[in-house]
Design a protein around this nucleic acid. Structure first.
Ligand SMILES: [Mn+2]
Ligand SMILES: [Mn+2]
Ligand SMILES: [Zn+2]
Ligand SMILES: [Zn+2]
Lengths: 141, 141
DNA sequence: GTACTAAATAGGAATCGCTACAAAATGGGA
DNA sequence: TCCCATTTTGTAGCGATTCCTATTTAGTAC
């Protein structure tokens, strides 16, 4: 827990129990959770945990580039602690988001372009392995 | 207008005035509009134009892969008629979305992978040229 | 330890993009 | 023309996010 406190201090962010909990949750859950998933999980242990605090904290962590916000879903934002460059795959059937370990080769070029690039997102969408197999089984009957 | 009708017929979609209007609007406005922008523009000429029709039609066009849905914004979906592979840049200041004419080099590889890829999205986010210059001018005062 | 103060949190209301639903309109075929 | 399936419309509803304000917390000075 001390490492999260250090991280926050390093960025000049005041350390609070709620912020530590959110950081810990993101670090231990690499499934790109929604704000609501974070909220409801933390609320279980601390019933007074507030939804607003989750949104405020995520906003602040994002501003300090400590977390990444994914707009891969059409209906809600997904968050992740890991902020090194990688792509994502969204299964349209089960909703699972997987990491794809490649880096955009245009990133460097874009840095030299007329645009001031701050974020790079690579999203693939389709059907995941598990769901594809399930579909095959169904069609065989 | 006849070309839109042909396009719809080719895909087995029944031709209606509303669908033609939406296709025409998307073809003539390459600024990746929101559903609401489409709706309010078409409503000006035809006051009974319905929001639901816009969403239904966009959903149908998307299902037939006639249009692309962009999840680049954090708050709303953007639509475009052009469905050939290209990337996008979102300016966080003015909200403008620009086309970046590159193709994801991982697309082919992903097609051979365990995933069944149906969509590829490449998003860059930051500050556009115009907004960067405006910022410079401000700081010079 | 107490008092003061600014920042953070909690809880609820409000907003907004999108969807669901049912009634009315449309339009092609008998 | 009449029928019936499809489409459109208008409204209500939903869910993710934001806004607002009272309360709590935590740091500082006395
Ligand atoms: Mn990831
Ligand atoms: Mn485009
Ligand atoms: Zn799946
Ligand atoms: Zn801009």
């Amino acid at each position: 827990m001390e490492k999260y406190a250090k991280l926050l201090k390093k960025h000049g962010i005041k350390v609070t129990p709620q912020r530590l909990e959110i950081l810990k949750y993101l670090n231990e859950n690499h499934n790109h959770p929604t704000a609501f998933q974070i909220f409801s999980n933390l609320k279980e242990r601390n019933p007074s945990f507030s939804k607003t605090t989750v949104y405020n904290t995520l906003e602040m962590l994002k501003a300090h580039k400590l977390i990444q916000v994914l707009t891969i879903s059409e209906s809600e934002l997904r968050y992740e602690f890991d902020n090194k460059l990688h792509h994502h795959f969204l299964c349209k059937k089960c909703g699972k988001i997987s990491d794809i370990d490649v880096q955009c080769p245009f990133f460097e070029k874009m840095l030299d372009s007329e645009y001031k690039v701050e974020e790079v997102h690579g999203y693939f969408k389709g059907i995941c392995t598990r769901c594809s197999k399930e579909e095959e089984l169904k069609s065989e009957t």
